[in-house]
Nucleic acid binder design. Structure first.
Lengths: 176, 176
DNA sequence: TTGTAAAACTAATCCTATTAGTTTATAGTT
DNA sequence: AACTATAAACTAATAGGATTAGTTTTACAA
């Protein structure tokens, strides 16, 4: 295997730091190649096309998201800690979070879901209801991040408070 | 004003039907121009650039979303009806819904918020808590639509049921 | 009827992604 | 140590986007 200085991992790491520093829209073949001091066509020796690169990015970004959540303090309100960590990750690393959306691997998705499931253990839910509850929780958090990105919340009311209230309402709804 | 057959409204309507029929990514200067049987540069006589066109689209799309929600039956569970109408609109008109996200006008945004506020009247909330509750509700619904679009919910569990449960949990949380 | 200005046009520039075809360097084999 | 096959880079090209400059056309107003 000749000239294998350049690896898939290097390409994905370069693409992710591009997303992190200049936004997800900056993830182009031209920009990735420029960052690596190669020409765009060379990338096709390692990935079929840009879509494949973005899929690989999603997997790596999802792992970073997972690790950020896993390292969260599990205090008295595990769902609130999780929510804050999730929204904080999405808001402070928008490019990375956007990178994670296209999908990723089944295992990491599952691990992420398990993290939420762990926060739900204190509520008596059968398997199906647990899945519904997890979907609702993720929807809430993702929607909060994404609406914010689209400047959805215009009023001058504390965002962090909104997040706390939202999670508070949801948790009380699970209890009753 | 010479040759004013082409109006801003015609351009926006063309762009919206492009989004509706071929997806939001199909909203390009080239495609809009092609649909109108003109050349792309002609569009710049009416709009500064593509971004401005997309802003105008957002306003029109948001009105359509508002009207779809306004015409909703206000039964015993107004928030559930609203949620179903919202998610149904987002899922069955993904291009239109995506068009609405970049913003729109303040008045329409406000009207949309008011629609949710109307569904919240039976709950005793002060002004600030009402805003938090509205933000949470919108986050939930938008997140549900968007995660679905990104194939976020992989498990074979009824989606409509998930939506009902999610709204049910939130409403119970508001009550307690 | 003529002049002006709006609205179309053509042609060009500068981005993308992607493919074809070519060169080069290296790893493994003789 | 020389040879060869191949991976991995390259150049050059195509096709599609947004946008700008400059030109022509046309409708209306004076």
């Amino acid at each position: 295997m000749p000239r294998m200085q350049l690896t898939k991992t290097m390409i994905i790491e370069t693409a992710l730091s591009l997303a992190e520093q200049q936004g997800y829209e900056a993830v182009t073949m031209a920009n990735i190649a420029r960052s690596l001091s190669i020409k765009p066509p060379s990338l096709y020796n390692h990935f079929k096309n840009l879509e494949e690169i973005k899929h690989a990015m999603a997997e790596a970004a999802q792992i970073q998201l997972y690790e950020a959540l896993r390292d969260t303090e599990q205090g008295a309100q595990p769902l609130l800690s999780l929510a804050k960590a999730y929204v904080h990750f999405g808001s402070s690393h928008p490019g990375l979070y956007a990178s994670s959306l296209p999908g990723g691997s089944w295992e990491v998705s599952e691990a992420l879901v398990q993290l939420i499931a762990d926060g739900l253990t204190s509520f008596p839910l059968d398997e199906t209801d647990k899945i519904h509850a997890i979907r609702g929780f993720r929807s809430m958090l993702h929607g909060f991040i994404d609406l914010n990105k689209h400047a959805g919340f215009k009023l001058d009311v504390d965002l962090e408070k909104s997040l706390e209230q939202m999670v508070g309402i949801y948790v009380r709804g699970l209890q009753s």
